[in-house]
Design a binder for these strands. Structure first.
Length: 438
RNA sequence: GGAGAGGUGGCCGAGUGGUCGAAGGCACCCGCUUGCUAAGCGGGCGUACGGUCACAAGCUGUACCGGGGGUUCGAAUCCCCCCUUCUCCGCCA
């Protein structure tokens, strides 16, 4: 979330920056302003009273005879204060809660280098890598290829789990598994990431930390607990199916103060990802492009503000290196202010070429969040020994979405007879096979 | 699922109603010292939010001893709920 102090002192600048990403809720901003000043008054009010009470109580502590009249008189006198303080405390808390809730709904401010725009049409193509594969035949899409090769079973996926689920079979499964290993190996051995294997279920507080909550709850699968459980654990936390590795991995360092020498702190991890895909009915219903469950390798970097921009570029290049190693044609697009995610200050999408769709499709989204996530989950670092802790900057990106990579390989490496050439770098992971055929 | 024990500052670890933001140790920082070398001595060293102020330092107030609520003039300390860690039993991949 945004820094309350910065927001209340730079309201106009904030409004302008938010407007550039399409956020024009003047009412909210006005409310923010009035709540911020109300908060200060309330704090002062409570604290003054608390100071009075503390002083008087300390004096009482010094009275030796606790049964003396002087003592009793003081006690009676202070009893009135107690209620008054409680009253003001709850008033102050209410203001702060409302303010906090409001801040949670404000998106991040785009970085000045992010292209200004209102929709994906305003995104900027940064670079194109490789060439479109040319085919002497009409290229098929991954569904036709996969079904013919008997490595994807959409019908049984639907039978078992419903729409937007697939069962990979034989070399399809092997390819998914091989890609998983190939990607992780590269990030760990060549890019120096610490490998992690995080949980698939995450707490609501984690979802809040990385901004999936509170605004985007409908996009996630929430674990439903039976009523008996709910009754017993009314105040306990909710659990969600992990929508992206970003959530468990970034939140690993929630409520911590890191040492500057630890930075950059980098993680690469595999997670199954689950998305309800609410609001995307009718979109990409064919094939593996948009499933309720998919596999992904996630890259996360905790960095200093000074290094953030170059670290962001670095992480993006790490994701790209996978595509390069696989010889896949792709491009990098910088998202405009209107198309960026809620928490991002700057974002590069990597889009892989899909001959079956005759289009580039997102395969990774590399975002720099500034201190937006770090503030929410309270992750700080000490720039120097004894120095005051500052919020870290977080950066993450897919490295890569495994299913979509599989799709791209099928479509880009397809041959006239419907078989698939296996990219050389991947062959060791497929038992040395150089092709996939029926 | 059952039984029990814990969660205190970056780390370890005292502390069971007032003199505790919290002993002691480690780590770290500053200075001194040192011919015996991951040595010795002295000092410093939590976070957040207010006020003052330059959103600095300093000074000052308040809160924070897993989280939330309660009792009390006063809570790290007592009560309740939750989270979490560990040990044992059961069950299970």
């Amino acid at each position: 979330m945004l820094d309350l102090r910065y927001v209340s002192e730079n309201l106009d600048a904030v409004a302008t920056a938010l407007a550039s990403r399409g956020f024009n809720d003047q009412e909210t901003l006005a409310k923010l302003e009035s709540l911020a000043s109300a908060r200060r008054l309330a704090i002062t009010e409570v604290e003054t009273l608390q100071a009075t009470r503390n002083e008087a109580s300390a004096a009482m502590g010094k009275i030796a005879d606790k049964k003396s009249e002087a003592f009793t008189a003081k006690r009676v006198e202070l009893q009135g204060l107690k209620g008054r303080i409680k009253e003001l405390e709850s008033k102050s808390k209410a203001i702060q809660d409302e303010l906090g809730e409001l801040l949670l709904h404000l998106p991040n401010l785009p970085h000045e280098s992010a292209p200004v725009g209102t929709s994906e049409d305003d995104n900027v193509e940064v670079r194109v890598v490789g060439d479109k594969p040319s085919f002497a035949f009409e290229p098929k899409d991954h569904v036709d290829l996969g079904v013919a090769l008997d490595i994807m079973d959409f019908e049984r996926g639907a039978k078992v789990s419903g729409a937007r689920f697939v069962i990979l079979k034989g070399m399809g499964s092997r390819l998914e598994r091989g890609l998983l290993q190939f990607m992780l190996d590269m990030h760990v051995d060549q890019h120096g990431y610490q490998e992690v294997w995080p949980p698939a279920l995450v707490k609501d507080s984690s979802m809040l930390g990385t901004t999936q909550l509170p605004k985007f709850e409908k996009d996630a699968f929430k674990i439903k607990k039976d009523s008996e459980w709910e009754e017993k654990n009314e105040a306990s936390h909710d659990l969600y199916l992990c929508p992206t590795g970003e959530v468990p991995i970034t939140n690993m360092h929630a409520n911590e103060i890191l040492d500057a020498s630890q930075l950059p702190l980098t993680y690469a991890g595999y997670t199954a990802c689950f998305r309800s895909e609410a609001g995307s009915y009718g979109k990409d219903t064919r094939g593996m492009i948009r499933q309720h469950q998919f596999d992904k390798i996630e890259l996360v970097r905790f960095v200093t503000p000074e290094d953030a921009l170059s670290e962001h570029a670095l992480l993006t290049s790490h994701a790209e290196n996978i595509l390069k190693a696989l010889g896949l044609h792709y491009r990098v697009v910088e998202l405009c202010t209107g198309d960026m995610g809620f928490g991002a200050r700057k974002c590069f999408d990597i889009e892989v070429w899909l001959p079956g769709q005759n289009a580039f499709r997102e395969i990774s989204s590399c975002s720099w969040f500034g201190e937006f996530q770090a503030r929410r989950m309270s992750c700080r670092y000490r720039p120097a020994p004894k120095a005051k802790p500052k919020h870290v900057h977080t950066i993450n990106g897919s490295g890569l979405a495994i299913g979509r990579t599989l799709v791209a390989i099928l479509e880009q490496y397809q041959r006239a007879d419907g078989s698939i050439e296996v990219p050389e770098a991947l062959r060791p992971y497929l038992g040395g096979r150089d092709s996939i055929r029926a």
